[in-house]
């Protein structure tokens, strides 16, 4: 069948694609690595894990206060491999926080971003237009942010969408470690965004410089750009689209509570 009938026929066969989240579960593969749970008294206490970590994200191994800084973590899972028992990654995709410090976790409690105050929610809660600025992001975060808008994750269901100009935006989404060569463009884009405005830092690079931390040609992410206050920090390398969407919806107060909307893996139930 050609033309419009062919398109419609194909469409009918394609079925519903959009994930059930937040009302129902989103599917994550069995091996997905989300929030880690730490047990410094088990195994080697995480010492070997700390030693292999590419971003020095594992802090105080063996001590009761041991944490993983999700702002640095690339979720490579090497620490889990090196320190079985002491470090275990769960599939809890909710890994964003309102402050940079919150991202230092031990996994004993879920990491749920708190909502904005009432005034801000009344401004942004039903319609949030975001301008994305890649400040030396490797196209991992950018690709996942793009995917957040596709028909699977369909972020615009919630009135959240990316727009072309900072002038049309309610806020910025920053990715990348903020290269020296992008710093000014980032600042200017922020200045061009009308206040009140939100800023969301997405990915290990934007939260800490990630794997590029301490390279002299970047800023160690948004903590190195104090001119721009950040309202939401989203961990991941890159964060899964649902992680990003969940963080934004929690910020807007549109998802609350700690019900984990997690379904089984894709290949077990092929398709």
């Amino acid at each position: 069948m050609d033309g419009i009938p062919g398109i419609l026929q194909f469409r009918a066969g394609f079925g519903r694609q959009t994930v059930a989240y937040p009302e129902g579960p989103a599917r994550f593969p069995e091996r997905f690595r989300g929030l880690p749970v730490l047990d410094p008294s088990a195994g080697d206490g995480g010492r070997a894990g700390a030693a292999v970590c590419p971003t020095d994200a594992v802090r105080d191994p063996g001590a009761p206060g041991m944490t993983i800084d999700l702002g640095r973590c690339t979720f490579c899972g090497l620490c889990e491999e090196a320190s079985p028992g002491a470090i275990r990654f769960t599939r809890d995709y909710r890994i964003s926080g309102r402050t940079r410090e919150e991202l230092r976790v031990d996994g004993r409690a879920p990491l749920l971003a708190a909502k904005l105050d009432e005034k801000a929610r009344s401004l942004f809660g039903r319609s949030l237009r975001l301008r994305q600025v890649s400040a030396a992001g490797c196209n991992g975060c950018e690709a996942e942010l793009n995917a957040s808008g596709n028909i699977q994750f369909d972020m615009s269901r919630f009135g959240v969408a990316f727009v072309a100009s900072p002038r049309h935006a309610d806020g910025l989404v920053v990715t990348g470690p903020v290269s020296a060569n992008m710093r000014e463009a980032l600042l200017r884009t922020w200045e061009a965004t009308p206040a009140p405005r939100l800023v969301i830092a997405v990915g290990a690079c934007a939260c800490s410089g990630g794997i590029f931390r301490d390279s002299p040609v970047q800023s160690n992410g948004m903590p190195g750009v104090p001119e721009i206050p950040v309202d939401l920090w989203v961990a991941g390398c890159p964060p899964h689209p649902i992680t990003f969407i969940d963080g934004v919806l929690r910020l807007l107060g549109r998802v609350e509570g700690d019900r984990l909307q997690l379904a089984g893996t894709g290949i077990v139930e092929a398709g």
Partner: peptide
Amino acid sequence: AEICGNRFGRG
């Protein structure tokens, strides 16, 4: 991601 946990094949 089914193979290694990451959608970009990292790790």
